[in-house]
Every structure is written in structure tokens, then in C-alpha cells.
Design a binder for these strands. Structure first.
Length: 585
RNA sequence: GGUCCGGUAGUUCAGUUGGUUAGAAUACGUGCCUGUCACGCACGGGGUCGCGAGUUCGAGUCUCGUCCGGACCGCCA
């Protein structure tokens, strides 16, 4: 027998028992005649103690041990002479009678500690060692719990989990597909699903009523800290529902998850914000509403004073940074540099310091008197002691820059509290998005999203102004999920394809199976998909999703541990009837 | 496709204006140590300064190219 207990469970109550433990050698502390060993497994650490003076065999075994050796240890649980309150097992230790080496280990390339000395690349290359560390192990445990609770909750709500295929059909809309060559149909390719979107809609036609699936999705696009080429969604769809039904159902899911796993109570009703408000008040379609600091429009009152930057700008707006009028020149220069970074792209920044004594100082004193500036302050509902930061320019970009500046200031002022969770539904997204490059509309969400009924009359006159029955769930500024009420009417679906510039033939070719299905009594339906990795990261308080994925890919989409992607053999190519040729762009 | 940052001991990093034998911490090895738990003390081994070219009397340091890693923009219905 390898073990009678795990390394995390022995307590004072076990004192006197003879036990067998197996695990990895975390650390060895030799004190001459006696040696302490920390033995680690998934469940914790137990200290072993060896009195080597009287036992040559034991002494020899211990001398040959190294870090991360796998050992089986037998001994008696005894009370510690000096207890360690930092360890759950810190009241006891195991007095060793024998140690058996089950496997040796080379010295690991980094320390297996909570605060490891290993860098990211090394940790990824030796991910199996990285997972031995508590932070990664706990992240995977959290992920496991979330998936268990998702299934529990949705099951009680009568959802059923149905698996949909991974080898499907490539479509040009949306993200780039990963493709898989077919051996039996040479020259033809499967695509891996970007999401099970069409299948879940077919399941609604099939009468499955309430469906969900925790499912891998694949998108061949560039990566980010919060974006992997293969990622997991909690994919859900319901029939006979309107938008409010969907939102309420999944507020319930989120409330359940946060309560069960973090013991956090989310608000009874999640705040709902139209997309247009999100953009104009927060400069983002995924506002972090843990703090206020809303963007204020100054276009009306700040223009027309001869300050050219403002006068020729489409939009002037700013934020009120509470209690920060004492910002130094250096700090303000830093912020100016921040907004001038190419990815933010503001030309410059105007500040107004509202001194605690009522004095006003700004970077545009030449153009605006104290009365003007105080008018701004009043308009922005600022108080003495606050700092106004103002940007001007093209409306959309300036709002986005202000949004970034807002997040930066929120961070600096410590307003993004780690133990606070602020869920928000962003609703009323535009149905269509104009793309300058290809000079056509694209579906902002996807081509099956239904338009808001009241906006239907705009279909021919102003399609860009049509709102969609689409919604995103945002928590702490992270897009956790999104969905829509779908089109279930064949005629409307045709109108949609037409607006997207599809010919009848193209629509039939790509989505004929879905349009066909809609001929046979498709119920009204809608759904949502949550980014499972992101949800776990938000619940775990991390910005990166990589630690919540057992074996993630790096920045370039490579798995540095197994070294993929990689070339395949001539034989494999031949079977697929594929020949390779370099193409220079 | 683009912008920025980085690559020096097993690991994390420092390395001044281009100048003697490239350092620290940690890890590793050896010895001492009976209450440690980031044990302590002493000693020791360990380097293709990512790679290639160039400038120079001389390059870890400067220039160009290239590879690798990270963050971001584009992209991600």
C-alpha cells in the first residue's frame, strides 16, 4: 500500500497512529543527527522527522534523497516539539521508520514554490512541474469547481448537456477558422467550430428546449493574455424566451456560482446599460463599474473660446479624478505620455486642478479664465480638490482614450478592488457594423441575431442604426459572455443576409442547413455563451487566463512543451493528397 | 501586418562612458550542526553574455540582420 493518508490530512487526533504517506520531497532540512523533510502531495505538506543516529539504513536512505524525489514513508504520528501555525498539519509530524524511494528526480529547472524563481517560458515548457505549485494547482481546482457548479445549476434548471461536433464546415464570417484536411475527401477540409452556434439553434428546432455545453471552441486569431486559440465556453440556448428571460436565467447562474464558490453575494438584479451609454459614459463596450468616474461631455461649453485644439475637435470630454488636484507636474506628464501611447492615440491632455482652497489651475489658463474652468467643473459635478483630465478629438477615439485613462486612474486610486464584483449587462448593441475596407456591413454579434422590432423600419434607410436583441455580460470590465435572441423567421433571416451583402446562393451554400431547418417549425429562441476560462480568471482574481488552463499556448500560439504546431510526415501528406508550396505574400 | 520591451550561471537578475580574470541572490554539490519549517555556518563547482555580421586596438555594452519570449494595436461574427 502506498498511502494510508494524504499529506494534507493528519492532525493532532491522529497522534500515535502508524501511517504511510507517499508524495514528493519538497524540502530537506538536515540538522546533523536529525533531519526534517517536507513531503508534498496535492492535498498539502506534512513534516517528516528522522532521528538518524540510531538507524544507519534510514540515514543512508535520507542522504540519497533530493528535491522532487517520489517517496513512500512509514512512521508514527507524533506531536511536534515546536508547532508551525502556518501549516494545517503543523501540530504534528511523522517520526520516520522507513523511507522508500519510488522514483528519483533530476533537479527541477525552477523551484516548486508559491513564489517560484521560474519565468513564464520555463514554466510553460515544464508545465507538469508548474502545476505542482499551489497557485496553478488552486487555479485548476477552482476551474473544476466552477464547471461542477455550472452543471449542477443548469441541471436543476432543466438544461441538458448535448455534445456537438468538432469537425464541421468552414464559413467566411467571423473569426478565421482552424481547418483540418479530410483524407477520405481529398482536397476538402473540415473546420473546427468557433462556437457551436448553428448546432445549438438546430437543437432548438429539434425541441431540446434548454441546452448547454461546456465546450472547446477554436479561433485562428492572434493571442492576448486573455485570448487563446482554443478556449472553453459555457454555451447555452433556450427556446420560447425573450431577452429578459435569458438575462434572468443567467443572472441566476452567476449568482449561484459566486455564492457557492467564493461566498460572494452578487446584486439581486444586475445593472443593465445600453451600448450607446457604455460608449459615451465609459468609452468602452465593457465598462468596469466597480467605480464611477464617468466621462463627461464638454463639447458644448468648452468650444468657441479660441482654443484651436478644442474648437476644431469633433468632441471634447473629460473625467473627474476625485481628490487628485495635488498631482505633480511629473505625474501629469506621465499621464500625458500614457494617453499619447500609439495604442491609445490621444494627441495631448488638458488638466484642470481644482484646489482645495477654491483656486483653479490648468494647462489652458491662457485660453480660459477661472470662471470658465469653474463652469466646466460644475458641469462635470466636480468638487474642490478634484482633478479634471480632458481630451479632445474625433468622438469615438477620444471616448475610447478617456475610457482607458479612466481605467488607469481607477487603478492608481485603488478603486478596482479585488474582492468586489460588479456584474453588468450591456444591451442594445448595434445589429450591424460598417467596415470601411470591404465597404459592407458585418453582423456585430453574428448573422442570426434578431433586430429590435421598433428599429425594423430602418432596414432600408439606415441599417447601421438598427439595434439588436443582443447582450454582453461584463464583470469588472471583463467581457464574460454574450448572446442574443435569434432570428427564427426565414424571411427575416433572408433580409439579414441581404443586408450583409450575401446573395441568395451564398446564403444557401453556407447556411442552407439552418435555413432549411427553419422551414420546419423553428421556435423563438435565444441564448448566451460565457468564456469559461475568463470567468475562472475573474473569479480567481487574475488578469491572465493562462493559469486557469492546464496546458495553454504561448503568445505565438505555440505549445512550447510538446512543441506544436509541427511538420507532418511525407506519408501523412501523401495520404491527405496535400503537397506543400511556400507562398510569398 | 505593425509598435514597444526583453534575451548574461540551472533560475531570477545586476553589469556605469566600449577597457584587467563577467558579478549577486537563489538553486546545486561537499562538510559541520538534535527542533528546523525561506533553518544556520563554511567551502566548492557552474558562463557559446540567444545567433550571425559590422564598427573598433578592444564589444556583454554601439550598429544592422535574425531567432526566441512577453505586452499591446490591427484582428478576435
Amino acid at each position: 500500500m502506498y498511502r494510508t493518508h494524504t499529506c494534507g490530512e493528519l492532525r493532532s487526533a491522529n497522534i500515535g497512529e502508524n501511517v504511510t504517506l507517499s508524495g514528493w520531497v519538497q524540502r530537506i532540512r538536515g540538522l546533523g543527527g536529525m533531519t526534517f523533510i517536507d513531503l508534498r502531495d496535492r492535498y498539502g505538506i506534512t513534516q517528516l522527522v528522522a532521528d538518524e543516529k540510531n538507524d544507519e539504513k534510514l540515514s543512508a536512505a535520507i542522504d540519497s534523497l533530493g528535491r522532487e524525489f517520489v517517496v513512500k514513508c512509514e512512521g508514527k504520528v507524533i506531536e511536534r516539539a515546536s508547532k508551525n501555525p502556518k501549516l494545517p498539519t503543523g501540530d504534528i509530524e511523522v517520526q520516520l521508520s522507513s523511507v522508500t524511494i519510488l522514483n528519483v528526480s533530476e533537479t527541477p529547472p525552477f523551484t516548486i514554490e508559491n513564489e517560484t524563481d521560474g519565468g513564464d517560458e520555463l514554466r510553460m515548457k515544464y508545465r507538469y512541474l508548474d502545476i505542482r505549485r499551489n497557485p496553478v494547482k488552486n487555479a485548476l481546482l477552482l476551474r473544476h469547481k466552477v464547471s461542477q457548479e455550472v452543471r449542477k445549476y443548469l441541471d436543476t434548471e432543466n438544461f441538458i448537456e448535448v455534445e456537438t461536433p468538432f469537425l464541421i464546415k468552414s464559413t467566411p464570417e467571423g473569426a478565421r477558422d482552424f481547418v483540418v484536411p479530410s483524407r477520405m475527401s481529398p482536397g476538402e477540409f473540415y473546420a473546427l467550430p468557433q462556437s457551436p452556434q448553428t448546432f445549438k439553434q438546430l437543437l432548438m428546432v429539434a425541441g431540446m428546449d434548454k441546452y448547454f455545453q461546456i465546450v472547446k471552441c477554436f479561433r485562428d486569431e492572434d493571442l492576448r493574455a486573455d485570448r487563446q486559440p482554443e478556449f472553453t465556453q459555457i454555451d447555452c440556448e433556450m427556446a420560447f424566451v425573450e431577452q429578459e428571460d435569458v438575462l434572468n436565467t443567467f443572472e441566476g447562474l452567476m449568482t449561484h456560482l459566486f455564492k457557492q464558490i467564493l461566498n460572494v453575494s452578487l446584486p439581486k438584479h444586475f445593472h443593465r446599460m445600453p451600448y450607446a451609454d457604455a460608449m459615451s459614459l465609459y468609452g468602452s463596450d465593457k465598462p468596469d463599474i466597480r467605480f464611477d468616474m464617468r466621462i463627461r461631455n464638454l463639447s458644448q461649453i468648452a468650444k468657441g473660446n479660441g482654443f484651436v485644439v478644442f474648437d476644431k475637435a469633433e468632441y471634447v470630454g473629460g473625467i473627474v479624478v476625485p481628490g487628485s488636484a495635488d498631482y505633480s507636474r511629473k505625474q501629469l506628464d506621465e499621464l500625458t505620455k500614457f494617453v499619447q501611447k500609439p495604442q491609445i492615440g490621444a494627441k495631448g491632455m488638458v488638466y484642470v486642478k481644482l484646489g482645495a482652497d477654491g483656486a483653479v489651475k490648468s494647462s489652458v489658463d491662457k485660453f480660459f479664465g477661472p470662471d470658465d474652468l469653474k463652469k466646466w467643473a460644475a458641469h462635470m459635478e466636480a468638487n474642490d480638490g478634484d482633478l479634471l483630465l480632458i481630451l479632445a478629438g474625433d468622438r469615438t477615439r477620444t471616448l475610447e482614450a478617456l475610457g482607458q485613462l479612466r481605467l488607469e486612474m481607477g487603478g492608481r486610486l485603488g478603486l478596482k478592488k479585488a474582492d468586489e464584483f460588479a456584474p453588468l449587462w450591456v444591451v442594445d448593441f448595434p445589429l450591424l457594423e460598417w467596415d470601411e475596407e470591404t465597404a459592407r456591413f458585418y453582423a456585430m454579434h453574428h448573422p442570426f441575431t434578431s433586430p429590435v422590432k421598433a428599429d425594423m423600419h430602418l432596414f432600408n434607410s439606415d441599417p447601421g442604426a438598427i439595434r439588436a436583441n443582443a447582450y454582453d455580460l461584463v464583470i469588472n470590465g471583463v467581457e464574460i459572455g454574450g448572446g442574443s435572441i435569434r432570428i427564427f423567421d426565414r424571411e427575416l433571416q433572408h433580409m439579414m443576409f441581404k443586408a450583409l451583402g450575401f446573395t441568395q446562393e451564398e446564403a444557401e451554400e453556407q447556411f442552407g442547413f439552418l435555413l432549411n431547418a427553419f422551414k420546419y417549425g423553428a421556435p423563438p429562441h435565444g441564448g448566451v455563451a460565457f468564456g469559461f476560462d475568463r470567468l475562472c480568471a475573474v473569479m480567481g482574481g487574475s488578469e491572465s487566463i493562462r493559469d486557469y488552463i492546464a496546458f495553454p499556448k504561448n503568445n505565438a500560439g505555440r505549445d512550447v512543451m510538446i512543441n506544436s504546431p509541427s511538420e507532418i510526415s511525407e506519408q501523412q501528406l501523401k495520404e491527405l493528397q496535400i503537397s506543400l508550396k511556400k507562398i510569398d505574400n
